Simulated assay, not measured.
Amino acid sequence: MTKEELAAQLDGIQYPAHRAITKEHIAAAKEAGLVIVYGASDDLMELDGASREEIGCYDGGIALIDLQGVLPDRDSLEEDDEIAEYVLRKRQAKTIEALWCKEPGYSWTYKTDIPHATFEVMEDAENYCRGIVFSLTELDTLNPA
């Protein structure tokens, strides 16, 4: 499955997206190395599929991601080896910026240099979120951040 195919399957799902994204979608995303990104509430960036994470981002925020998945919050690291690993991973990590109410008609949109496909999450008949789908394997082909 490609990122475009999965995004097409997800396009038009209803909020809350975590209820509309099925176990089959998640299994297919994992198998294909794809990550689904969408917003929840007014303070969460959700990632599902090949990397699963919930990131607090009230009023917007940034996630760092590499081939291993989402980097941990730097402030949560205490051990020297954890910090050293974080520094190494951060050099190759790409960013996904969660934008809260920055585009007319959307609560959540995302900005990233990672090649991706988009899908719409609806709340009743209104746009709620423009989610993205990307491939972890494509991160390896991008220039270092």
Rank of each mutant, 00 (worst) to 15 (best):
L67M: 12
S76C: 03
G12F: 06
T95G: 04
L99P: 03
W100R: 01
K94R: 09
A27S: 15
I26K: 10
W100V: 01
R52S: 12
A117N: 03
T109F: 05
Q9T: 09
D11F: 11
L47C: 06
Y58F: 10
E103G: 05
N127I: 01
K23P: 06
I83T: 03
L136D: 04
R52Q: 13
L142C: 15
G12T: 06
R19A: 07
I21V: 14
G69D: 06
G33E: 13
L44W: 14
S76K: 14
D59M: 11
L64N: 09
A20T: 03
T141C: 11
L142S: 09
Y38G: 02
Y86T: 02
E31A: 15
A28N: 08
E97F: 07
D42W: 15
A40H: 11
F119R: 01
P115G: 12
F134E: 03
G56M: 04
E123L: 11
G69T: 06
L139T: 02
A17E: 00
L77D: 01
Y128D: 03
E82G: 00
P104V: 05
M45T: 13
V121E: 07
F119L: 07
I114P: 02
V35L: 09
L10W: 01
A20W: 00
A50K: 06
A125P: 03
A40I: 04
E120A: 12
V87G: 03
G33A: 12
Q14M: 04
N127E: 08
A117T: 08
E46Q: 15
D81A: 13
Q68W: 00
V70M: 12
Y106F: 15
G49A: 05
T112L: 11
R89A: 14
E103A: 07
T22C: 00
E97N: 12
R89M: 04
L71D: 04
V37E: 03
D73P: 08
V121C: 00
K111H: 13
V121H: 02
G61I: 04
S51F: 09
A40S: 09
A93L: 04
R74C: 09
E31C: 06
E103V: 14
Q68F: 06
G56C: 07
D80S: 05
A117Q: 08
D81W: 12
A145Q: 14
E82P: 01
Y15W: 07
R52F: 13
V35P: 12
H18A: 09
S76Y: 06
Y110P: 02
